[in-house]
Write a protein that binds this DNA or RNA. Structure first.
Length: 394
DNA sequence: TCTGGGGTCCTAGGACCC
DNA sequence: TCTGGGGTCCTAGGACCC
């Protein structure tokens, strides 16, 4: 049976939610990311009114202010966006039994075999757009194709509020007419590499052998390019079990040079990560840290122990060890991050046995605190550094 | 205009084992 | 006594996505 996929993408999602919630923002340039004066912020989402001025995602806020000084600037309100996202994903579920959400504002719907029940894909897509608008007040762009990859590219071609259908049998043709810059999964570095190697069109890639592409671009990227320009169905994703991680990082308004401040930051980040791990009922034996210096060079270190990370303190201590190993004394730090990787569900191990002696009590106290905070987010309990006195380590 | 935060996946090199 | 080849696991760094 021929597959049918929808890729559904919410238009300028964060900015649109703000315009929905605040009628006075409608038809005006809205820039979500930060407010003037926020140092080192970037644009998260710009409304289409703001994009006319050249503002786009990932642009430093300072530049966006210069380009569009009269815009409405907002700090992001993730809770609200998450709430709205959930509502929309639920609506998608009424259209397809198989919805693969790939980010907060986009999803694939497997519509294979629904034609008899629902009607022609194009009509169903129109109906979906209408229902999203009626029920949530937001607009979406939809791509329809026989592969997820092509559906994804198609949805991007008609934004905002668009619908693009790539009929069966036209996949290869579509890919060969597509500007090389529209290949999804090929970023600035590989685009540059392509140019340098003499590839300017998807047809250029098509004309090259698989082994040749592998030699130039490496195994994965070479194979990817080969399949992409052919519209190959093997280019699926989302099925293989993913190794999970939870991370937290901060860019400081001003570079840190003080060890105590660095350590405090690591404590707070450790707390964030453990709080979320508790909420999601996962655990891990692997922690890693990330250090970004003033000049933007970034280094990381990671360690795996046989015991699970059992508490914020435990996490903090492991991170500090890594930090001491990696940090080049005297250099200013712009960003610090910590994470737990290779997460597993909590019920996959018998926890108590994997805890260090004496750790168990600490973990229990912490659990109680996490529970309290989860129930009453308004009561911010003093950050973990104060849970237990921590001596200076440097 | 100096460049966020949260993720996933790939690669290359070293350790270790047979 | 100057050294093979394969497999697997771990780590650091990089590319990419929204």
């Amino acid at each position: 049976m021929e597959h049918v996929y929808f890729h559904v993408d919410l238009d300028a999602f964060f900015a649109s939610v703000e315009q929905l919630d605040h009628p006075e923002y409608r038809n005006k340039p809205v820039i979500v990311g930060g407010i003037p004066g926020d140092r080192r912020s970037v644009v998260s989402t710009a409304s289409y009114e703001a994009r006319k001025y050249g503002v786009h995602s990932a642009m430093p806020l300072e530049k966006a202010i210069k380009l569009c000084p009269n815009a409405i600037f907002l700090r992001p309100n993730f809770h609200r966006y998450q709430e709205k996202s959930l509502q929309i994903m639920e609506l998608f579920n009424s259209f397809s039994p198989s919805v693969i959400q790939i980010s907060i504002d986009e999803a694939f719907l497997d519509m294979t075999g629904t034609q008899k029940l629902f009607g022609k894909p194009e009509e169903v897509a129109q109906r979906l757009k209408k229902e999203v608008k009626e029920e949530t007040g937001l607009t979406v762009s939809v791509g329809v194709a026989s592969t997820m990859y092509i559906a994804k590219i198609a949805s991007g071609l008609s934004k905002p509020n668009g619908l693009t259908v790539i009929p069966n049998g036209q996949e290869e043709d579509f890919m060969l007419k597509l500007p090389i810059t529209k290949l999804w999964g090929i970023g600035t570095k590989t685009q540059e590499h392509l140019k340098q190697a003499g590839f300017y069109t998807t047809q250029n890639i098509y004309n090259y052998s698989l082994s040749g592409l592998k030699t130039i671009f490496g195994n994965a990227t070479g194979t990817f390019l080969y399949n992409a320009v052919r519209g190959n169905k093997e280019l699926l994703f989302g099925e293989n079990p993913k190794s999970r991680s939870i991370s937290s990082e901060t860019t400081f308004d001003f570079d840190l040079t003080d060890l105590y401040a660095m350590e405090s930051a690591i404590m707070e980040l450790s707390y964030n990560v453990l709080f979320r791990m508790h909420k999601e009922q996962v655990h891990s034996c692997t922690v890693s840290i990330k250090i970004r210096y003033s000049d933007f060079t970034t280094v990381s270190a990671q360690s795996t122990e046989s015991r699970l990370v059992s508490s914020v303190d435990d996490m903090f201590n492991r991170c500090c060890k890594l930090f001491e190993k990696k940090y080049e004394k005297g250099r200013g730090i712009r960003l610090l991050g910590v994470s737990c990787e290779n997460l597993e569900d909590k019920d996959t191990h018998i926890q108590a046995e994997l805890f260090d002696f004496g750790e168990e009590k600490k973990a229990k106290v912490e659990k109680a605190i996490f529970e309290l905070e989860k129930k009453h987010p308004e009561i911010k309990i003093k950050k973990a550094r104060l849970l237990e006195s921590t001596q200076k380590r440097f």
